[in-house]
């Protein structure tokens, strides 16, 4: 895997900012009442993240490390101002739905976190792809949460009614507690999938032939013994 695609994989799956790092919880919980709001918030944050990673990576040798955080904030704040004006001019509905959470992108910990952890130390191209990966991961997570909450709490997805007419929307899911329930369930689901994958990987790959004190492959052994028994 080359470094560019590794960055994308890292942001979207391995270190997904929402489901793994649990960063940027404030917009995640507050604005995902519908799929379109989640998507809008995700894309806005992603746009700022990509640009800020780009600029910060460009300036990483100019910015003195003692004042790097104020410098990052100035860069991010200017980008957010541009974004806010653009949203206000072209997509009024999303602008009014997201409200205060657009200016709050300035202090979004994913953006500052990536600036501090990656863009401030790495070359431009990789930083941009780190931004794209993280941004897409965040967008994907918010859209999924938004879809589920809109589906259960409103019976629709992206404003289109998909549930049958007898479905009674569970209003709690679009209220604040619903955000916690849905996020917690998705994190649990992801952890479950990952832990299962890891277990399989360990038992398959990491056997070094020293079987004493190791029971990684005992399950496989049992399985193969059973198969042999069946054959016999």
């Amino acid at each position: 895997m080359n470094k560019v695609s590794e960055r994308l994989y890292n942001g979207i799956i391995k270190e997904n900012p929402t489901f793994v790092l649990l960063l940027g919880m404030c917009p995640t919980l507050a604005v995902t009442t519908s799929a379109i709001n989640g998507l809008g918030m995700g894309l806005s944050a992603a746009a700022v993240l990509i640009m800020s990673n780009f600029i910060i990576s460009l300036l990483r040798k100019v910015i003195p490390s003692g004042v790097r955080v104020p410098a990052y904030i100035v860069i991010v704040a200017s980008l957010v101002t541009v974004l806010e004006l653009l949203l206000q001019a072209y997509v009024r509905s999303i602008y009014s739905a997201l409200g205060i959470y657009i200016p709050l992108i300035v202090v979004n910990c994913i953006i500052l976190g990536r600036a501090e952890a990656y863009a401030g130390k790495n070359p431009v191209l990789l930083s941009v792809f780190d931004g794209i990966g993280m941004g897409l991961g965040f967008t994907m997570a918010l859209t999924v949460i938004g879809c589920i909450r809109e589906l259960l709490g409103n019976g629709s997805v992206f404003g289109i009614n998909v549930m049958p007419s007898w479905y009674e929307p569970i209003a709690m899911i679009v209220l604040a507690p619903g955000a916690f329930f849905v996020l917690a369930m998705l994190v649990a689901l992801r952890n479950r999938l990952v832990s299962r994958k890891k277990r399989e990987k360990i038992s398959a790959d990491s056997c070094v032939g020293q079987c004493i004190g190791c029971n990684l492959c005992s399950k496989n052994l049992e399985k193969s013994e059973k198969k042999e028994d069946e054959k016999a």
């Binding site: 009674e168 569970i170 209003a171 709690m172 899911i173 209220l175 507690p177």
Partner: peptide, 10 residues
């Protein structure tokens, strides 16, 4: 309480 908040009418 979950039901009361979700389905206030019912």
């Amino acid at each position: 309480v979950f039901l009361l908040i979700s389905f206030a009418g019912i």
